[in-house]
Structure formats: C-alpha cells, structure tokens
Amino acid sequence: MIRRRLYTEERFSPLARWSFRLALFSLPVVALAALLYRTGFLDFQPALVTLATGLGLAAIAGILGTVAFFITWETGWLGIGRAMAAVGIAVLVLAGPAAVLARGMMLPPLTDISTDAADPPRFRSLALASPREANSLTYGGIDNAAVQRMAYPGIKPVDLTATPEEAFNTVLALVQKRHWTILDAVPPRGTRRDGQIEAVAVSPIMGFRSNVSIRIRPTAKGARVDVRSASRYGSHDLGTNSERVEALMADLAAERRHR
C-alpha cells in the first residue's frame, strides 16, 4: 500500500514582497537625485521632483510594510522579515528629511539672511555667476528684516579688536576650512576699502547651493564682520542660512578668543 504524503504549501505575502521591492527601489532614486544635481545633470526643480519621488516611494513602502507585518503575523504567511526590512529602509530614508522639514516648517519662509539688514553685504562676483532662474540677489528690505529679527534675534555682526587684515585672514581660513567655493576674496585696505569674501556653500547630501558674502569693515576699535547667506533656489531655506551664519560667527568669535 502506497502512503500519500500531504504537503502544506506555505504562502508568501505579496504585500511584504512588494513593500520590500519599493523600499529598495527608493534608495537609488534618492541617491540619483543627489548625484545628478551635484554633477549638474539636473536643475533644481527636476532634482527636487526626483527626490520627492524617492521619498514618496519610501513612505509607501513603509506603509505597505507595516500592513504586511500585521497580515503575516496574523495569518502565519511567509514574508514578515521582508516587511520589517521594508519598514526599516523607509525609516532610514525618511528620518533625516522628515526632521529637517518638521523643523523648517516652524520657521518663516526666508531665503536670505544677513547680520546687517540695513546695509547687507553685497553680491558682486556671485551676481555674475548666479544662473538666471535663481532667486533674486536683491535683499528683501524692511519686511525681510522684520521677519528675520523675530525668527533669529541672535543673528548679529561680530565686532573684533583685531585689525581688519587680521580679521580678514581669520575669516578666510574659516571659509577654506568649510570647503566653500571661493569666487572672490578682496582684502581690506585700511579705512579706505572694506574686505569682502564671496563663496558658494553646498549642503552635505543633496548639494543645494547658497550664496555667501562676508564683509570685513574697519571700526574705531578694530573690525566688524557681517555675513549674508542666501539660498540660490526655493522659497524656504528651512533654517539652513541662519544655521550657516550663526555657526560661522560662533567659530569666528571662538577663534579670536584663543589668540
């Protein structure tokens, strides 16, 4: 007599499979957005759309992975590992942008920050290098200054007891340490000419560019340093310009204290 064997087919959750695939696919989409923008193959708007697509795929993958986890847990189907992996990848992709966006949305939609709102440092070389479709390099005036004072009361010039030449050299060293691309560096000439440094700062991951102008002006006791940072594109800097200005001024003050 031939014995029959009963085979129990274990079903794999299709939702877990697709959530994992979407999560994996979101990784190269986000990386491609950053790479193509940094290398100049994509302009700002297409790069932003590509980035948003990658983040959207990661969000969908996270939602599907969460649903798939509970389905596999209840039914005993295979795929709980892939569902958990999909959620993990989604969290990895979305955590950083979500934190920046959440913080930025609590701040006013500014793109141009200056320590001297009445007479902000000018963009000269950057005015020639800035693309036509980029944000205007004209400061927003009284309205911009009022909003800035409310949001960032700590954005102020730094007065140094050093000579203008010493202040210029210190600032230039700090800019070089940050690996900003320097377009122009004009040293001060006594009381006859302000010193000025113009540079382009690039964000760490996506490579979004901001124009930076630093002015070193002689004073009765030494020199005053003013900084202006303006996003090249977009209608909201999410607080990045204020962070850049505050960090540079803090490093400048600390550098002069140790001398």
Rank of each mutant, 00 (worst) to 15 (best):
N211V: 11
P164R: 03
T161A: 11
P120Q: 10
P218T: 03
R11K: 13
I63Y: 14
D194M: 09
W77G: 03
L42E: 02
R103S: 07
I182A: 03
V175M: 02
E165G: 07
M84F: 10
R124S: 12
F208T: 09
M106W: 08
V202K: 15
P108F: 12
P164S: 06
L42T: 05
K156W: 08
V158I: 15
H258S: 12
R178D: 12
E166A: 15
L55I: 06
L107D: 07
R244E: 05
A118S: 12
D43S: 13
A220T: 13
S130Q: 09
E166W: 10
T191A: 12
G222K: 03
T115R: 06
E166R: 12
A145I: 10
G96V: 15
F12C: 06
R209S: 10
L42G: 01
G40V: 07
L107H: 08
I60W: 08
A68W: 09
V175G: 02
A146Y: 09
I214Q: 04
A47V: 03
V227W: 01
L174D: 07
I60E: 02
A95V: 10
M84G: 15
A83D: 02
E74K: 15
I80N: 09
K221A: 14
G62Y: 06
R178Q: 10
K177W: 03
A58W: 02
I205R: 07
I205Q: 03
V227R: 01
L78W: 08
F12R: 14
D43W: 07
I89A: 00
L137R: 05
R132F: 10
G239L: 08
A85L: 14
I155L: 08
A34E: 01
R215C: 06
G239V: 08
P188E: 07
L94G: 01
E198W: 07
